[in-house]
Amino acid sequence: MSEETNQASQNSSTEPSYLRSSPISNLDNLRISQQEQDKLTDLDISDVTMGWAYRQTAFSPQRRLTWLSEQLLTVGVALIFCLPITLLLSRSLSGDNVQAVWRWLPVGGVGAIALTTFWTGYRWQAGQRLIILSHLLDEIDRFNEMVAAVEILEELGSTQNSQLNLENKEDVLEALHLTRESLVCGLMTERVMRKHQRLMARRQQMFSNIERNLATLQQLQVNDAASDYGRLLNEAIQIGTSVHHELSRERT
C-alpha cells in the first residue's frame, strides 16, 4: 500500500479490513450500508426518499408504477382524514341536514386530492433543495453495485482457479477504498454545509481530502481497460470525478 492511502485512512474512522487481511476477503465493510448513510447524512435514507424529500430516483421510469401506487395510498389516507372531517363540519354547520351533508361531501374528496398534491409538491420541493445529496446517493448506489460486482468476480475467480487479472486486483481494491472515502467525505461535507453554513474550515479540509483521493485514483494505471477489473477501475474514477464535481458545484 502506498503511504498516501494509509494517511488517508487515518482520516476516516472506518478503516477497511482488507488492509489487514488477505485481499480475497469479504468486501462487506467496503459497502456503504443504509445505516451508515443514515448516520452520515442525519436523514432517513431509503431507495426513493431522503427524510420526507424525494430522491431523483423516485421519478425514474422503472419506478413509475411504485410511485403511482404510493400516490394512490396517499390519496386513500388523505380521504380517511378529509371525508369524516367534512362530515363533522357539514353536520355542525347545516344542523344535521342530510341533503346538505351529501352536497358537501365532494368537497372532502377534493380536499383529499388537494392535500395529496400539496404533500407531493412539498416532498418534490424538498428534494430539489437536497439535489446534491440526491446525486451523491446515486453515486453511492453505483459504488455499492461495483462492490457487488467485484465480489462476484472474486467468487468466480476462486472457483475457476484461473489467473484472472490478479495483477490488477490490488489496484481495484485500492480504488474502491479511495472511492469509498471520497463518498463518505462527500456526504459529510454535504451535511456540514447543510447544517452549519459557517463551518468553512472543516469543509475545506474534507474537500481537499476528496481532491487528493481523486488524484490518486487517476494515478492508478489502467493497464487493461477491456478486462472486468479495468472496467471497474474506470467506473471508480468516474464516481470520484462526479463526487468532486457535485461538491465543487455546491462550493461555488
Binding site: Q35, D38, D44, S46, T49, G51, W52, L73, G76, V77, I80
Partner: peptide, 20 residues
C-alpha cells in the same frame, strides 16, 4: 431517531388499510 419518516409513513398506511 432512526428512520422515523419511513416508520411514520408505513405505520400510517398499513394501519389505515387494516382498519379499512
Amino acid at each position: 431517531n432512526e428512520k422515523l419518516e419511513t416508520k411514520i409513513a408505513s405505520l400510517l398506511v398499513s394501519s389505515s388499510l387494516f382498519f379499512a
